[in-house]
Design a protein around this nucleic acid. Structure first.
Length: 290
DNA sequence: TGTTGATTTGGAGGTACATT
DNA sequence: AATGTACCTCCAAATCAACA
């Protein structure tokens, strides 16, 4: 990834990176001496380095979002996967072009014999953070939107899978932690997204109860929330996005995107490549296909 | 060898389209 | 307008590969 490369080149340690993110979230864009403050929070980095790092991040996110970054040869993208199935435009018949790989295509276990099981491409920290941002904004369940607007390098299925493991990890966090893992990153800024609770009811009461899955699913699926209410966030995570989470990325994510970026950086979801328009909440797209 | 992470698969509910 | 059918999406579990 470009970001990683950049990070490597400038030798940003994990701690510095984290401090940087936290600082970005802590000091709003309009705060005085923002960069000085951020620099002060990031040990070993100068103001200039901080700014450069920010620009790199910004640029990277921009390119990802705008599709300028050649995606890795994810096999899952063959046939424009995730998005294919999801883009799910014309409902019927949208599948015969071979893109309905997603779920409805299972059925055949022979697929495995056809091609070796994919090794899988490890999630990068950047992807994970984007995932967290998306999770924060859309809440659990709307993997499609998260995939589309945040982790554009991953299909909805991959995002869901990642989320599954992520929440499992969270649940086991209290227990003896073994290895460090990318899932240990539970916040994008200074907000712990983990507080959203598990996605699967796997160990968390709410969803876990009995027919958890289905009931939980419904809550996360129906955007029946009134306008203004975080339609995904609120009911899904039981936590208003506009609340404390806001600071996660420095500002409410669903506000008209100013040049504010994820990790305090403009939310990737904000269509930077789509003009200055306000963020188009994918309400319709997210559920209209069903 | 055990743990972690990614992928695959199965099942189920909801929605949209087509037909009567 | 009501009913039926097909498709889409999600969750959860199983499986496999890589790593410490």
């Amino acid at each position: 990834m470009t970001v990683e490369e950049a990070v490597d080149s400038s030798e940003w340690s994990r701690e510095q990176d984290k401090a940087f993110e936290n600082a970005l979230a802590t000091y709003p864009e309009d705060s005085l001496d923002r960069w000085e403050k951020i620099a002060a929070d990031v040990p070993g980095k100068t103001l200039k380095e901080i700014k450069e790092h920010y620009e790199l991040l910004e640029d990277d996110v921009n390119r990802i979002v705008s599709g300028c970054v050649p995606l890795p040869p994810y096999n899952s993208f063959e046939g424009s996967t995730g998005h294919a199935g999801d883009e799910g435009t014309g409902k019927k018949g949208s599948c015969h072009l071979g893109n309905c790989n997603n779920d409805s295509n299972h059925g055949s276990k022979n697929s495995r014999s056809d091609q070796e099981r994919r090794k899988g491409i490890a999630w990068t920290e950047d992807e994970h953070r984007l995932f967290l941002l998306g999770l924060e904004k859309y809440g659990k369940g709307d993997w499609r939107s998260i995939s589309r607007n945040f982790v554009v390098t991953r299909t909805p299925t991959q995002v869901a899978s990642h989320a599954q493991k992520y929440f499992i990890r969270l649940n086991s966090m209290n227990k003896d932690r073994r290895r460090s893992s990318i899932h240990d990153i539970t916040s994008v800024g200074n907000v712990d997204i983990a507080s959203q609770g598990p996605i699967t009811g796997q160990s968390n009461g709410a969803a876990a109860g009995g027919s958890s899955a289905k009931s939980a699913k419904q809550t996360s699926r129906h955007p029946a929330s009134p306008p203004g209410v975080g339609m995904y966030g609120a009911p899904t995570i039981g936590q208003p996005i506009g609340g404390p989470l806001v600071s996660a990325v420095g500002r409410p994510v669903n506000l008209p995107a100013s040049a504010h970026m994820g990790y305090g950086v403009t939310v990737p979801g904000a269509p930077m490549n789509m003009g200055p328009a306000t963020y188009p909440m994918p309400h319709s797209t997210a559920h209209s296909h069903r």
